[in-house]
């Protein structure tokens, strides 16, 4: 469906599979996933190239522990490769991997909390939002003020509301994809959470004058 940007230039890395991008960028997610399930290495290569960096960024919203994020990505792909041949159909690779990443990161954070060093994961601080207009607009004082107002209001929303907003506007996911990533049972719930977030946003901005 979507054709995500290639976040890694194949030629810069010592992996000799730059062909994989050319080969797969025009195929559907379902096709790519099937090829991966059959053991096709170029398909795996493509999936890793496209999604590892964005999974890292997404996971980074939950925790700043970069070593842990790397481990999570590693574990996800190790697991998927083990299960090749028996993987279920996937029509939207991005949503599926984000869901898996979310689970993996939350599990790791829980584990860290159990151990004595639990300085990470201040739950209310996850998924901070930045409002970033085009620079020329920001130069105007009025716009700057407005930007700050919206930004501080956004960051008063609940972390789950912020996550949904970021998936919608930053990641460009639709409601179906959001409900998969956040594991809602119905697409309706994704709509509801955004609807409520926008309503509280208006309220916050109004109350602050």
């Amino acid at each position: 469906m979507q054709n995500p940007l290639h976040t890694k230039d194949p030629s810069i890395f010592p992996l000799k599979h730059s062909e994989s991008i050319k080969q797969y960028e025009s195929r559907t997610d379902n096709d790519i996933w099937r090829a991966f399930n059959k053991g096709n290495e170029a398909a795996f290569n493509y999936i890793y190239r496209i999604y590892a960096p964005t999974l890292f960024q997404y996971g980074g919203q939950f925790s700043k522990d970069e070593g842990m994020l790397q481990d999570c990505i590693q574990n996800i792909f190790i697991d998927l490769r083990r299960k090749r041949g028996h993987l279920k159909e996937v029509n939207n690779i991005k949503a599926y991997l984000y869901k898996t990443m979310r689970r993996e990161v939350l599990r790791s954070i829980k584990r860290q909390k159990r151990s004595s060093f639990s300085s990470w994961a201040h739950d209310d601080k996850v998924f901070p939002i930045e409002i970033c207009h085009e620079t020329k607009l920001i130069q105007q004082e009025y716009e700057m003020e407005r930007k700050e107002k919206i930004e501080s209001a956004m960051n008063l929303l609940t972390p789950r509301q912020r996550q949904a907003i970021l998936l919608l506007y930053e990641e460009g996911m639709n409601f179906k994809e959001i409900s998969e990533v956040m594991e809602f049972s119905e697409v309706k719930s994704a709509r509801k959470i955004i609807y409520r977030a926008l309503a509280s946003l208006k309220l916050i901005i109004k109350n602050r004058g």
């Binding site: 890292f56 901070p128 939002i129 930007k147 970021l166 930053e170």
Partner: peptide
């Protein structure tokens, strides 16, 4: 178009490889 992640951790080349 103005909503963005505030923190944008990058997977550096070493971790990626």
């Amino acid at each position: 178009s103005s909503v963005h992640y505030k923190s944008k951790p990058l997977m550096n080349d070493r971790r990626y490889v």
